[in-house]
């Protein structure tokens, strides 16, 4: 049984000299899927360029797009812009068939920052984080749960994780914050 963690309350979940873990406010999230043919039209409709290399990100205003796979993108935007995104994609559906599915509530995001943020991630992530450039992101795994790991600065990360896995993941991050601070 994992500890109770209130996912409806954004704020600091753990903080130590090593790192802090913060649950972020909700954002609007969409999964966008389309084939090669539709990408240009969707880019134009969204007012940004869909990156085509797995792990690359682009940002236009409040909208961030991450390429997760050859035909898959994750869009984050402010909740007020969710309708705009839906309409923009809908307007090109006939010419650029795609799937746009809202998943705002499917996952939550925690931010990890601090001098040992990278080290903290090594508790559960088997990837070599030195090979994840700042400004990129990857879908990977953390202690058995699929996550999207965004590297925003050398020692600042975001983790998107499905809601029901969040308490498990957060409890390990909390343990790690204490453990790293004690070193």
């Amino acid at each position: 049984m994992t500890a109770h963690i209130n996912l409806s309350q954004a704020g600091v979940l753990a903080k130590s000299l090593a790192a802090s873990v913060t649950l972020l406010e909700p954002v609007a999230r969409f999964s966008l899927r389309t084939g090669a043919a539709g990408q240009a039209k969707l880019s134009a409709a969204l007012g940004l360029t869909l990156p085509t290399k797995v792990g690359q990100r682009t940002q236009a205003g409040q909208t961030e797009v991450l390429c997760l796979g050859p035909d898959e993108w994750m869009l984050h935007t402010s909740e007020s812009l969710a309708g705009t995104i839906l309409q923009a994609c809908e307007s090109v559906y006939a010419d650029a068939p795609h799937s746009l599915t809202e998943i705002s509530d499917r996952e939550v995001t925690v931010r990890i920052e601090g001098p040992k943020a990278s080290e903290l991630l090594t508790l559960g992530c088997p990837r070599d984080l030195d090979k994840l450039p700042v400004g990129e992101a990857r879908r990977t795994v953390f202690d058995g749960a699929t996550i999207i790991l965004w590297r925003d600065a050398a020692e600042t990360y975001r983790i998107d994780v499905w809601r029901s896995f969040a308490p498990h993941l957060i409890s390990l991050l909390q343990t790690g914050c204490g453990e790293l601070a004690a070193e």
Partner: peptide, 18 residues
């Protein structure tokens, strides 16, 4: 490692679990 007690394995809970 960490996989004992409360953290033995992932326990998924619904929003209504509480």
């Amino acid at each position: 490692g960490y996989h004992r007690g409360d953290h033995f394995e992932v326990t998924r809970k619904t929003p209504i679990d509480g």
